[in-house]
């Protein structure tokens, strides 16, 4: 049940692109054609599934406060969490290279279809963002971390697939000249993000309040957005009732 909830939450409610704007650069740059978008999306799912659990292990056994206990009692007080950025990004960069070598060796056809996207992924914010969110939300078990990586990857895949399909179609419409290309893509993504906000009610059963998952660290999320939701929802709802 816990797994199922995390799975759907990561895909729809906490969608990497629409809720947190992670991986926007490649999302905007590579979404001109559906076929390339699928290639990049698959690569992102793959790399997220590998790196999030790996970084979870790093976090649990090296970086967290007291994580070095297994070395002996005298190490119990060390807190290396300030090193997380550098260790996470090093893991991601090396894993991407490793994955590239392994895939090239054992599955040349997959390698050809992923093509140049694999090396690009090392600098995709969605990948590092996945690991940083995993850390800030205190995901508890290895299985959940694996699940989180995989499902956020799927969320990203869905987003890029959708925008690529829309951009292929929008070529036939008469967009105002200054908005062509980048501008209209931004606005469409904004509208899609508003649509995705409606999934927020999925786990609460549609009630306006935040899910009462006491002690569930998933609620910590991003502070900025939490504040906004708590202060602004009443206003929006009063606006609606006025109409």
């Amino acid at each position: 049940m816990e797994h199922l909830e995390l799975f759907f939450k990561s895909i729809f409610v906490d969608n990497m692109v629409f809720a947190y704007f992670l991986g926007m650069c490649s999302y905007l740059a590579v979404s001109k054609k559906v076929s390339t978008a699928v290639g990049l999306g698959a690569a992102v799912i793959f790399v997220l599934t590998v790196t999030v659990p790996l970084n979870w292990l790093l976090d649990q056994y090296i970086l967290q406060e007291g994580a070095l206990k297994w070395l002996g009692p005298e190490y119990a007080e060390y807190d290396l969490s300030f090193l997380s950025f550098i260790l996470f990004i090093a893991t991601i960069a090396t894993m991407v290279q490793l994955v590239e070598i392994v895939v090239e060796k054992f599955s040349p056809s997959l390698y050809n279809s992923l093509g140049i996207f694999l090396p690009l992924i090392a600098v995709n914010c969605a990948i590092l963002g996945g690991s940083l969110f995993m850390q800030s939300r205190d995901i508890e078990t290895f299985g959940l971390a694996l699940n989180y990586g995989f499902s956020s990857g799927i969320g990203w895949f869905l987003a890029i697939l959708a925008i690529a399909a829309i951009r292929e179609k929008i070529r036939y419409s008469n967009v105002p000249a200054p908005l062509r290309g980048l501008g209209i893509t931004f606005i469409i993504t904004g509208l899609m993000a508003i649509g995705f906000m409606s999934f927020g009610g999925m786990l609460t059963g549609g009630s306006e309040e935040k899910p009462a998952l006491d002690g569930n660290p998933d609620n910590l999320g991003i502070q900025v957005e939490e504040n906004i939701e708590s202060t602004e929802t009443p206003e929006v709802s009063t606006l609606l009732t006025k109409e």
Binding site: F21, G183, F186, I187, I228
Partner: peptide, 28 residues
């Protein structure tokens, strides 16, 4: 203040900028 509006505001900035400088307009 909701996140999606950031995208739309940037979209509008792009719109304004490209209307002022026609050379920046993309093909499609």
């Amino acid at each position: 203040v909701l996140p999606p509006m950031a995208l739309i505001v940037v979209g509008i900035i792009i719109w304004v900028q490209r209307s002022r400088n026609k050379e920046l307009i993309e093909e499609n």
